[in-house]
């Protein structure tokens, strides 16, 4: 609890005087603050969709936030057999970490415990390019091959690129009880952005849930972006720091409806429930496009009757160098 007074002045609140509205829903003139991260993309396949989804669920489990999970990881999109290297159903997975070293630690662990163990699966690099394009690599088969106990097979498959250049891709074939586990030697990693977000201020929990689901469904169609939290959204939006010295993040009381009367709040009186959609993306543009699609879908799904407004989380611009200005995104970017 805090001794700060309630400073919400309803008459002058931004929701009343917003210059930008989507489907009647006010959009605050603020920005989402995001940070540099490292990313890699993995392609996972299996003999059928069910095994593939089972392995994917395990692989991306406990991957919501780098605060405690090590990586933020989620399925980017499902892939048809025509879109995968081995002609079987698959998924593309994006994994983000605060450092390359952390990514190099987390991916082999997850691949070893969640993919290698799942029947019929195989794992490939989702970022096309050898060391000349992605000099920093995340090990996959390089780390898992030892499970083969000397009976693993390394194969270099030569692929002729569009420019006529022959590229060698190294795979490992590890004998397992259903045949062999095939995986690529390693995968490139590159720079990315994590922490893009927007906050939906709902008039009720059902209304903000519907808006949130519409937003996440729209974002799911966008390439290069994931929403790693359960269902794509989080209710536990956090601020930096805590009264407890051991915590470096704690609840953001300014967006907690139950604390509206006893703590400094950012919420208008009509806001009864608040959900935050958090996005990680491979580039600024891809996150911006996804934010626009998500906000538009959320507003159009429930309108002014369901949402009091849309805002975004930031730390005053002091922590992250990527600022996603909601008004710029919604007005300037093409659909």
């Amino acid at each position: 609890m805090t001794d700060s007074p309630n400073v919400n002045v309803t008459a002058e609140h931004w929701t009343e005087n917003a210059t930008l509205r989507i489907a009647g829903v006010p959009i605050q003139a603020t920005f989402a603050e995001a940070f540099d991260m490292k990313v890699t993309r993995l392609i996972m396949t299996a003999a059928d969709r069910r095994w593939c989804n089972d392995a994917a669920a395990a692989m991306v489990g406990f991957g919501t936030s780098v605060i405690a999970c090590g990586v933020e990881i989620a399925v980017e999109r499902e892939l048809t057999p025509e879109q995968t290297p081995d002609g079987r159903p698959g998924v593309a997975i994006l994994a983000f970490a605060v450092s390359g070293k952390e990514l190099e630690k987390q991916i082999p662990r997850r691949a070893g415990q969640c993919v290698l163990t799942c029947p019929t699966t195989a794992l490939y690099a989702g970022l096309d390019g050898d060391r000349s394009i992605y000099p920093n690599r995340v090990p996959i088969g390089k780390a898992l091959r030892y499970f083969g106990d000397g009976m693993q097979i390394s194969k270099q498959v030569l692929q002729t690129n569009a420019d006529g250049r022959v590229e060698a891709i190294r795979y490992w074939r590890i004998p397992v009880m259903d045949g062999e586990f095939v995986c690529q030697h390693d995968v490139g990693r590159t720079e990315a952005i994590g922490g893009g977000n927007f906050i939906l201020l709902g008039r009720s929990m059902p209304a903000v849930s519907n808006a949130c689901r519409a937003a996440v469904d729209a974002i799911r169609q966008m390439p290069g972006v994931i929403t790693p939290f359960p269902g794509g959204a989080t209710r536990s939006g956090s601020k930096v720091g805590s009264k407890y010295a051991t915590l470096f993040a704690s609840t953001n009381e300014a967006f907690c409806p139950s604390l509206r009367k006893i703590a400094e709040t950012e919420l208008p009186d009509d806001a009864a429930a608040v959900l935050e959609v958090v996005l990680d993306g491979m580039s600024f543009d891809e996150i911006s496009d996804a934010m626009k699609a998500g906000i538009t879908a959320a507003c159009e799904s429930v309108g002014r009757e369901g949402l009091v407004g849309v805002t975004a989380g930031n730390y005053g611009g002091k922590l992250g160098r990527h600022h996603f200005k909601l008004h710029d995104i919604m007005m300037e970017r093409s659909s």
Binding site: P85, G87, R88, Q159, T160, G179
Partner: peptide
């Protein structure tokens, strides 16, 4: 022989 590697090896455009 039944491995996804067969596809990788034999379905190359070259």
């Amino acid at each position: 022989l039944d491995s996804p590697f067969q596809h990788l090896m034999l379905n190359r455009p070259g």
